[in-house]
C-alpha cells in the first residue's frame, strides 16, 4: 500500500531522516516508535504531501507523493501532531467545512458528519465552539476531521498525547476499531500504546530505522539473552561460584534474599533455558530453591537499548 524507499529529509544540514526504507501493507496498523525528534513527524509530513523529501521516493499504491500529491491527499486522512483546529468555529461548522473541502458530495455530507459524530462521541459538544472544548474532545474532533471522508489510509501523529488515562483508552479503542478496516500509521513515544494498538512497529532513532517487526518479534529477537531471578537458601559465595562455572551463564549477580540464609541471584544466561539449569544445579547441590522467574526483554528494554546511544 505504502512504499518508502531511501527516504532522506534534510533541514539545512541536519538530517531528520536518513535513507529510510519501509513498507506498509494494506489493513495494517503500523506504529512509529521513537524518542522526540527522531524523525517520526517528518516521515508523516512527507507521506501526507505537506513537505517534499530531499531524496528518495514514497509511493502510495502506484502514485508518487511528489508527482501525484493531489490524488494521494484524497485517500489520506491526517491528524497532525499539534491537532490544529480552527478554534473560532463551532464543532458542526468545522466538520461541515472539512466535509466540503474534502469534496464529499452534498447528498452524502450530512450522513458522513453524523457518522463521525457517532464514532467519535461528539454528540454533547456539537454546538460548542472548539475553543471551549477540553483536550480530549479536541482530539476527537481532530480524529473526526481525519476520517470524515472515509479515507483508505489514516495517518496520526501522536494521537493520544496530552490526554488523561481514560481518554487514552478511549482513543486507543477507537483506533483499534478503525484499524480493522483501514491502513493506519500512528506515531507515539508511549510504549504500551504500541502493544495495545499496532500490528507492526518501526523504531526510529536519529532519522534511521533501528528495528522493525511485530512487538513479539522485537522482544524475542534477543530471547537467548534472558535473566533468571532466583532465591536460594544456601551459601552465597558458593552458589555464585558454582553457577558461574556453567558455560551458558554469563554473569551472576547477588541480591538480598529478604530472609536470613536466603540470597537472591540474577543469572544472565547466554543460550538455552536457564530455568532448567538453575533447578538442576540447586537439586544436585542440595540447595533449597525458593523462588524463580525468568525475565525477558520487553519492548521498553528494546526501545531503551536501541534509542540510547552508548557513550
Amino acid at each position: 500500500m505504502i512504499q518508502v524507499q531511501n527516504l532522506t529529509k534534510k533541514y539545512n544540514e541536519t538530517k531528520a531522516l536518513d535513507s529510510v526504507n519501509f513498507e506498509v501493507r494494506e489493513g495494517e496498523v503500523l506504529g512509529f516508535l521513537g524518542p522526540n525528534g527522531a524523525g517520526k513527524s517528518t516521515a508523516m509530513k512527507i507521506i501526507t504531501g505537506f513537505i517534499a523529501p530531499t531524496q528518495g521516493t514514497v509511493k502510495v499504491g502506484d502514485l508518487d507523493v511528489v508527482d501525484n500529491s493531489f490524488e494521494i491527499r484524497e485517500k489520506i486522512g491526517y491528524l497532525p501532531e499539534t491537532n490544529p483546529l480552527y478554534t473560532d468555529m463551532k464543532v458542526h461548522e468545522y466538520l461541515k467545512f472539512v466535509a466540503q473541502a474534502r469534496q464529499i458530495p452534498k447528498q452524502n455530507r450530512q450522513d458522513a458528519i453524523k457518522r463521525m459524530i457517532k464514532v467519535c462521541g461528539l454528540d454533547s459538544v456539537i454546538h460548542k465552539t472548539i475553543d471551549e472544548l477540553s483536550k480530549g474532545y479536541r482530539q476527537r474532533v481532530g480524529l473526526a476531521q481525519a476520517m470524515v471522508h472515509d479515507p483508505d489510509i489514516l495517518i496520526m501523529d501522536e494521537p493520544t498525547s496530552g490526554l488523561d488515562p481514560n481518554q487514552i483508552v478511549e482513543i486507543r479503542d477507537l483506533i483499534k476499531k478503525i484499524g480493522e478496516k483501514k491502513t493506519v500509521i500512528l506515531s507515539t513515544h508511549i510504549l504500551p500504546e504500541v502493544t495495545a494498538t499496532c500490528s507492526r512497529v518501526i523504531i526510529i532513532n536519529n532519522g534511521k530505522i533501528v528495528a522493525q517487526g511485530t512487538s513479539d518479534e522485537l522482544t524475542s529477537a534477543r530471547a537467548g539473552q534472558e535473566i533468571i531471578y532466583a532465591k536460594i537458601r544456601g551459601d552465597k559465595e558458593r552458589v555464585s561460584s558454582v553457577l558461574s562455572e556453567y558455560n551458558q551463564v554469563k554473569t551472576v549477580k547477588t541480591f538480598s534474599g529478604g530472609e536470613t540464609g536466603v540470597h537472591g541471584f540474577g543469572i544472565e544466561i547466554s543460550e538455552g533455558d536457564g530455568r532448567e539449569l538453575v533447578y538442576r544445579c540447586a537439586v544436585s547441590n542440595n540447595w533449597t530453591l525458593l523462588e524463580m522467574y525468568r525475565k525477558q526483554e520487553n519492548l521498553e528494554d528494546v526501545f531503551r537499548r536501541l534509542t540510547t546511544t552508548e557513550e
Binding site: 501526507t48 505537506f50 493531489f70 491527499r73 491526517y78 497532525p80 499539534t82 490544529p84 473541502a101
Partner: peptide
Amino acid sequence: KSGTVEFLLTLPIR
C-alpha cells in the same frame, strides 16, 4: 502559528 496550515495544505486542494 496555530499549525492549521499543515491541515490546510494536506487537503486535496492545490
